[in-house]
Amino acid sequence: MGFFDKLFKRNKDQEEQKAVLDEGLKQTKENFFSKISKAIAGKSEVDEEVLDNLEEALITADVGLDTTVTIIKNIEARVAKDKYINTGELNNILQEEIANILTDSSSTDYKTYGTPLDKKPYVILVVGVNGVGKTTTIGKLAYNFKKNGKSVLLGAADTFRAAAVDQLSIWSDRVGVPIVKKEMGSDPSSVAYDTIVSGIARDVDVIIIDTAGRLHNKAHLMEELSKIKRSIGKNMENAPHEVMLVLDGSTGQNALEQAKHFTAATEVTSLAITKLDGTAKGGVVLAIANQFKIPVKYIGVGERMEDLQVFNKYEFVDTLFSLQ
């Protein structure tokens, strides 16, 4: 049982989701937990050597230098205040400090997320480089929204790659939701505009719009995303309501670089971190959340459509510190 386990009274579905999370993060938690355990092994109290070992363990677990320094400083302050802390207490304090740097969406799920009456349709603009699982994430989002009673419309505004439109069309058919698309090379902003017009006419709950994933020219990326957002806003005030950045968790620190580019180019309001199953680099979730102060809303922990989970920081931390 994890440190935060006492917070939860899970129903059957939640227990199944936790089991999927445990399995999906298996490599990450084995990597993370083993490094932390070695850092404090054989020590009876938290001294400078323990903190140095802990710092090294966090950095090598892909937590990142800046985030590691923040965690260590907070632990040092607590050790200084309480005078004596043993390594058993350190384990609990570490979990608390990691949870404190994360922002989550634990108060929402696919049933309640994103559709207050004054934001219908709720418009999500999805950004991210090619290859991170952006289109797959959109498909999984659409599936889970639909499964929970929401009507969904997709917009294929990545018109620079025929494969992108084709892939989103496949997801549209697979999930059974409509899609707005045009031929390759069309103006992405015109696709976004038509998607909003169609979504309002259809009275859908959620609109999800795909965008091109190119980073070779930051100025062009900023211009393109700004134009798309203006086109969306012409038909619906204050839309898009959310700009979701999709990052590939298996790339470790490279995901941080991608986040830097996109947060510089547009106002990112949420994160979806994919491909955490099959990688030991899931510690990068901590680095990304801490550095950019943007809530992680979803994590991908498997191939099934249900395996795009609403992020809960307490469940995530519990999993990192558990080898069951």
Rank of each mutant, 00 (worst) to 15 (best):
T279Q: 05
F321V: 13
D13R: 11
V204N: 02
D277I: 07
G128M: 11
K6I: 14
G302D: 11
R230A: 13
F3C: 05
D307A: 14
I59R: 07
L225G: 07
A212C: 04
V20I: 15
G131L: 13
A99L: 00
M244N: 01
D109K: 00
S250H: 08
V317N: 02
P116K: 11
K150I: 08
T319Y: 15
K146H: 02
S105T: 11
V46R: 00
T67V: 13
F33D: 04
V310H: 07
E306Q: 15
V129F: 10
K293T: 10
V69W: 00
K146D: 00
I85W: 00
K29F: 07
A162R: 04
T135L: 13
L94V: 01
V63H: 02
Q253Y: 06
G199R: 10
K234Q: 14
K35Y: 07
F4L: 03
D47T: 09
S44C: 01
F262E: 03
N130R: 13
V285Q: 04
V310G: 03
G2W: 09
T263V: 08
K134I: 15
V129G: 02
V204Y: 05
A164H: 03
E237F: 10
L215Q: 10
E242F: 10
I75Y: 03
A289I: 00
T108M: 11
L256Y: 13
Y110D: 01
N91H: 13
L90E: 06
N235Q: 12
V317Q: 02
N290L: 12
D277Y: 09
G131A: 08
F8W: 11
K111F: 05
G302K: 09
L323F: 02
G128P: 10
T112Y: 08
T68S: 12
N100H: 11
V46C: 02
D318M: 14
I288M: 05
V206P: 04
E56F: 07
T67A: 15
G131M: 12
A239H: 07
T87I: 08
T159G: 03
A212R: 02
E267V: 01
L117K: 15
R214N: 09
L153T: 02
K81F: 05
L94M: 06
F33N: 13
G128H: 08
A255T: 08
A61L: 03
S250E: 08
R214G: 05
L323W: 04
Q17I: 15
A39W: 06
I288S: 01
S44V: 01
I200A: 02
G2F: 13
D187S: 04
Y193I: 02
A272Q: 01
F145N: 01
G133S: 05
L154H: 09
Q291I: 14
T195N: 06
N144V: 06
T112E: 08
E45F: 15
D194T: 03
V127C: 04
E223G: 03
V50D: 00
N91D: 11
A289R: 00
H216Q: 15
K227V: 12
K18I: 14
K35M: 04
G282Y: 06
A19N: 07
L54E: 06
A19Q: 13
T269G: 12
G278Q: 15
M222D: 01
E16S: 10
G249S: 11
R174M: 03
V165N: 03
Q324K: 13
